[in-house]
Design a protein around this nucleic acid. Structure first.
Lengths: 204, 204
DNA sequence: CGTTAGTTTGAGGCAGATCAACTTTGGTGG
DNA sequence: CCACCAAAGTTGATCTGCCTCAAACTAACG
């Protein structure tokens, strides 16, 4: 939860319904406010010229979106896209600043969130070199499944999150099922033991 | 500059002199305040169990250090080490909170810094997969040399910053000199044209 | 001027990306 | 409810960037 008492503070703002796959903003644009996710999932993606995608962050119910660029006054460094159908509310700069003025504690909460995300990002960056692809894939499925258990994550999404390819994700998933760490059903799968997986990720 | 009027606000705090190579804090410890760098350079490093190091961030004169962990109430996710002889001041939680209460704008400045660092970190993470080692090395020497021109960066430091190895850095540097983009003198080198380098980084 | 930390250069190997062909899933509309 | 089909997943074969290992060289400092 990133904003306290959202509904009571912004009763005049209207939400927008997004279909799965639609974009909220794109890399290079400049923010004029921030977004609040009423429900649904949104992903932040960086797309390189050569077509390679990196899945940077996931945003869910009650999360803020677009706040990083807003607070450092930069253009968006990545694009945000609805992973599921979603409902979001845009909070224009004017309303946001009034809210921040009346809720001095909220800035501290946002700072805590961004600071935590920075740590996570730096550890993921480190993992790109001090861990194998398999280890990163295991950590990624643990993260994605634990935080968003109801979501069916595709091999491509797991690959883009872990810094790998969907073929390699397939192979790792097959091995994990053979080892009894996960159970596949259809395109989805469920984790048998998080502890066992994380232990295996370290060995990789 | 991360803190306005540092000297006038904390006249009672004493600074500490650090020799090149000494550690300020280590991964896993919990912060009880933050550090202010009076002068010198400090590096933030993540060290993996298999010995691989990642050079996460550089801190220079008047920068804050250790603020990320402080504000999200996490343990340090990496270790900070003096790159040069340095002088730093520890600001205990108590003093810091008084300062923040009297300078509401400072929190916003720190948030802007952390938000900017998050963007940079995520783009570096993306670059680990959508750029070649050569491209990342070129971007790294441009960043390090432009921001800290007086520092002699070793091949190892450039490698750990770019996500590569010092042998590969050597080879890239040799090629860049052959192409006339840099001039080596001793262990150091100077950049002839930033534009030319960045263009080359994209092609890699 | 000795020492050591840093650099250079070459050779070889491999993790995992890439390419390709095929199969399965699950949603859609008739 | 079934037939269809696009999207997602599987599997195997190949290829390569750059990491790793090794050995010699050199700058820079006390």
């Amino acid at each position: 939860m990133n904003i306290d008492n959202f509904d009571s503070f912004f009763p005049h703002l209207t939400s927008r319904n997004l279909k799965k796959g639609s974009f909220i903003y794109e890399e290079g644009q400049g923010p004029s406010g921030i977004y609040y996710i009423n429900h649904g999932l949104v992903g932040l993606y960086h797309l390189a010229e050569n077509g390679k995608e990196t899945f940077l962050r996931v945003f869910g119910k009650n999360n803020l979106l677009g706040h990083r660029s807003y607070f450092c006054k930069e253009k968006y460094h990545a694009s945000s896209q609805a992973i599921t159908n979603a409902e979001i509310t845009f909070i224009p700069q004017e309303d946001l600043e009034i809210y921040l003025g009346q809720n001095p504690n909220s800035l501290r909460q946002i700072l805590a969130q961004v600071a935590s995300d920075l740590g996570r990002s730096e550890l993921r960056m480190s993992g790109r070199h001090d861990k194998s692809a398999g280890g990163r894939i295991i950590e990624s499925i643990v993260f994605l499944k634990l935080h968003y258990p109801d979501q069916l994550w595709t091999r491509k999404q797991i690959a883009d999150y872990s810094g790998s390819t969907f073929e390699t994700v397939t192979r790792v998933l097959n091995k994990l099922e053979k080892d009894g760490d996960i159970i596949k059903n259809g395109r989805d799968f469920s984790i048998i033991s998080v502890e066992s997986l994380l232990e295996k990720a370290g060995q990789y």
